[in-house]
Amino acid sequence: MKKSANIAHNAAPAIALLFLLFLWEFGVRFYEIKPWILPGPVKVLSSLIKEHNLLLMHTGITLFEALTGFLLAVILAFITAFLLTHVEWLNRAFYPLLIISQTVPLIVLAVLFTLWFGWGLTPKIIIVVLVCFFPVTINFIEGINSVDPDQVHLFRSMGANKWTIFRLVKLPSALPAFFSGLRIAATYSIMAAVIGEWLGAQKGLGYFMTLKQKSFAIDEVLAAVFIICLMSFLLVKAVDFLEYIMLPWNRINENGKY
């Protein structure tokens, strides 16, 4: 009884998705909508299969940009968070700038980056870095600052220096918050790479979509959209898995059981 209820519980989103896809397919056929306006999911799927070689090549490029940018952003975020939480004047000088930097319209920057760095991968990676950097940094800083000060005092009373305290107390305490930021960054990373490509590129899913959109091959555009969704989803799941592995103590619930 309980098990079957559990399966129904987990299957609910899949059933809802199937229902919506069915509605879409049905609507497109019933109202005889032209495929260059809106193709049905069956047509999208068949284009996905037909063009899989080309799509795979572009996907590889986009994934490379997204992952490289993501990793660079995490490294930068780590260093920034450490400095801002340990050097008071740096924090006072740069924390407000960090917040204000989020008001700059990124899409304009993306255009400028293409102007400055050309049509290659560099400007896309920079955009991904800029997009992913903020959520990771802010969450990490929050995590480090929310460590119980008494906990820090205890280790100071033992004669531990700043680095030891960071390594043994602050860093592990901040990891759950760090992973929250990582999860947000993971969802943004693929999209950021695609936006970069959309504004000027010779490869990648964003480039593929602009090309196909101009020739009204909406089914292929949507096939690319499907891949983007799938990649973002898998990336988030990868972050979840990493968190599960790295924070075994976080799996214990309130009752003290796994």
């Binding site: 009373s157 043994l168 107390v169």
Partner: peptide, 13 residues
């Protein structure tokens, strides 16, 4: 050795 009212054990260890 210094001990407080709170146990201050690290939850992740």
């Amino acid at each position: 050795g210094y001990m407080q009212q709170k146990d201050l054990l690290l939850p992740f260890r």
